[in-house]
Every structure is written in C-alpha cells, then in structure tokens.
Amino acid sequence: MRYHDITKDDMLNGDGLRVVLWISGCTHACEQCQNPITWDINDGLVFDEKAKTELFDILERDYISGITLSGGDPLHPQNREEVGKLIEEIKEKFPNKTIWCYTGFLYEEIEDLDFMPLIDVLVDGRFVIGLLDHQLHWRGSSNQRVIDVKETKALNKIVLHNS
C-alpha cells in the first residue's frame, strides 16, 4: 500500500479532531476530483513501519477522535488486504477511536468485506460534479451517503450518520 500524506489535527473529514491517511489508488476518476494526484496506485510513499508509527503516535493523543481513511480510494481492490489489516490493528490498539472511510464504491458493493464491521462511518459513492453541494457535511455531492456502519449492520438497512 502507498500513501500521499498523513494529515494531523484535521476537522474536515469526520467528527472531532482526526488524523487522515491519504491512500494511493483510485479507478473511479471522478470529474473534478479534489485529489487526482492520488489516483495512481503506484504513486506516493510506501506505507511502512515508520509511517505506521507516525500514524499511531498521533492516534495516541487524547484529543484525537480517530482516523479517517481517504485518498484516492482506500478500498481500491489492491489496497483492501493491507487496509483491512491496518483497520484491525487500529481497532485493537485504539478501541475508543472512531474509524471513518471514504470510498467511491457503494456500501452495497463492499458490505461483505471482513473488516467492514470495524469501520464506524463510511462515506460512499463517487463524487458527481453535477450534484456538488457546498452545504453538505462531510461529502461533496448529494449522491454520496454518510453511513453509520454499525447501525446499518445491526438493522440490516442503511442508517445515515447524524451529527
């Protein structure tokens, strides 16, 4: 897995103050994407032990609410195995931190991934420039959903995250 950046103290990509891991790789190629530099799966830095240590050091801070995985698309098929392991390790080491994940895939396309129940909030769907709405919270276009994954799994129907 490769990544482009680790953003500390982010308030724009989920509830509270967060750390954001910007993962390389996306095949959706959404028109006017905010991060086209992250599309190439082979671009960016290797996510190695040094990067993981940096990420975990930030997550240890009391004032950090959790982590947001973005990109690119963290759920690009070539990223899924490593992203799944990272999510499992984060949940084990930081059980009180929330995990948010942005993806261009629809929830229904990825709901059966083994690590999906460990994600707290999933922002799904491709960005569609024709549906751009600057008033939306945590998403760019009105087709995207901010899904409470745990409630969705429990009730077996899509439950949107409220905040």
Rank of each mutant, 00 (worst) to 15 (best):
M1Y: 06
Y3E: 03
H4L: 07
I6H: 03
L12K: 11
N13H: 13
G14L: 05
D15N: 14
G16C: 05
G16L: 04
V19S: 07
S24A: 15
C26P: 10
A29Y: 08
C30S: 13
C33R: 01
Q34N: 04
Q34C: 09
P36V: 00
I37T: 05
I37N: 04
I37Y: 07
I37K: 07
D40C: 06
I41W: 00
N42H: 13
G44K: 02
L45F: 15
V46A: 15
V46T: 15
K50M: 10
E54Y: 03
L55H: 09
I58N: 07
L59Q: 06
R61V: 06
D62Y: 13
I64A: 02
I64Y: 01
G66V: 02
T68Q: 03
G71I: 01
H76W: 14
R80Q: 10
R80E: 04
R80P: 00
E82H: 11
G84H: 08
L86H: 00
E89M: 09
I90C: 08
F94I: 06
K97A: 04
T98M: 08
I99F: 04
Y102V: 00
F105Q: 10
F105G: 04
L106S: 12
Y107A: 09
E111Q: 14
D114M: 01
D114I: 05
D114E: 00
M116I: 07
M116V: 02
M116D: 00
I119E: 04
V123P: 08
G125I: 10
L136W: 13
H137R: 15
H137Y: 03
G140D: 01
G140Y: 03
S141H: 12
R145P: 09
A154T: 13
H161Q: 05
N162F: 12
N162P: 06
N162K: 14
